[in-house]
């Protein structure tokens, strides 16, 4: 699939001397949902700000659908919608006025029917005459999205879209993102909620200290780096793990009633069936077995630990 956004060798050093990005290379494929994960201060917002034209980069090139963001900034920017992390709206403007303003700012002719559809989709239509200052936090967040969608962008950046948003609204937003993707919009989201990336993203990028340390399909990432755990609840507590089972590297709980076996698809450790057989052979009886996959969050945390 051809990339719609290409970031090549982008670095950013602020006037204070702080280097926010180091030689970042990233290609975003057309029509995908890409989640950019990273701890606070990793460079996520700086990267988005550079692509959107808000911050000047120190070096490197960025093209949006083949348009250089400097030489052909009008074409590049007209394809992008941005929902920033902070709720930054002119508080004294009405919902209707501010969304139409955004559409005009991006050079689109007035289209009341389209703006109405956007507001209805985001459950803001009955607030169209309300001033932004009177809206709740969740509504303001939706208004930010409405402004970003007002000019019919082909790429939508969502910078921490569900920060401080209640569960119901978060689910609504996920649904909206999926609908946009069905319409062919490429979505790039940064998030602290790993479950958000896990639920929605096609691919995941991890950024840490200004460097992209990994870009991988979500399913592939889970398969490669995801770990599985099996926990056996024992009928009788053990004082220690029998020597015959040492090659499994089992963990015994402090009270001796649980044995935990961690394995993954990449390792050469024996499988679960083999362990169960060996447990029975060693005369260890268990009451219950529980298995679970590690979440994207655990993968993320492990990655950051591995690459300090």
């Amino acid at each position: 699939m051809p990339s719609i956004l290409s970031i090549s060798g982008v670095s950013k050093t602020y006037a204070t001397g702080f280097t926010a990005l180091k030689e970042v290379n990233l290609d975003i494929q057309r029509g995908e949902i890409f989640a950019l994960l990273g701890p606070n201060g990793a460079g996520k917002t700086t990267l988005i700000s550079i692509v959107c034209g808000i911050v000047n980069r120190s070096s490197g090139t960025v093209t949006v659908d083949g348009h250089d963001i400097n030489k052909d900034y009008r074409a590049a920017r007209s394809l992008i919608g941005l929902v920033p992390q902070e709720l930054t709206i002119d508080a004294f403007e009405s919902v209707w006025a501010t969304v139409n303003y955004s559409r005009g700012l991006f050079g689109k002719p007035a289209n009341p029917a389209f703006v109405e559809k956007v507001l209805r989709d985001l459950s803001l239509w009955d607030k169209k005459d309300a001033k932004a200052i009177t809206l709740s936090g969740g509504m303001k967040r939706r208004l930010m999205i409405a402004k970003a969608l007002s000019h019919e962008p082909r790429i939508l950046f969502l910078d921490e879209p569900t920060a401080g948003v209640d569960v119901e609204l978060r689910q609504d937003m996920w649904e909206m993102v999926r609908r946009l993707r069905e319409d062919g919009v490429t979505i790039i989201l940064t998030t602290h909620y790993i479950e958000e990336a896990e639920a929605m993203a096609d691919r995941v990028g991890v950024i840490n200290r200004g460097e992209i340390i990994l870009v991988e399909g979500k399913a592939e990432l889970m398969r490669k780096l995801g770990r599985k755990q099996m926990t056996a609840e024992l009928r009788a507590p053990l004082a220690s793990v029998p020597d015959g089972l040492s090659h499994y590297a089992l963990e015994l709980s402090p009270d001796g009633t649980q044995l935990t076996y961690t394995y993954d698809n990449q390792s050469d450790r024996p499988g679960v069936a083999s362990l169960i057989r060996d447990l029975e052979a060693a005369g260890i009886q268990f009451r219950d077995l529980d298995t679970k996959n590690s979440s994207l969050e655990e993968i993320f945390v492990n990655l950051l630990r591995q690459k300090p």
Binding site: S49, C52, G53, I54, Y73, R74, A75, A76, R77, S78, I80, L82, P84, E86, T88, I89, D90, A91, S102, L105, F106, G107, K147
Partner: peptide
């Protein structure tokens, strides 16, 4: 100054405006 102060200047800077 006002859009700078409240942060809404992001929209102006990210728009296809010279």
């Amino acid at each position: 100054y006002f859009p700078k102060f409240v942060g809404s200047i992001y929209e102006l800077l990210s728009a296809p405006v010279s």
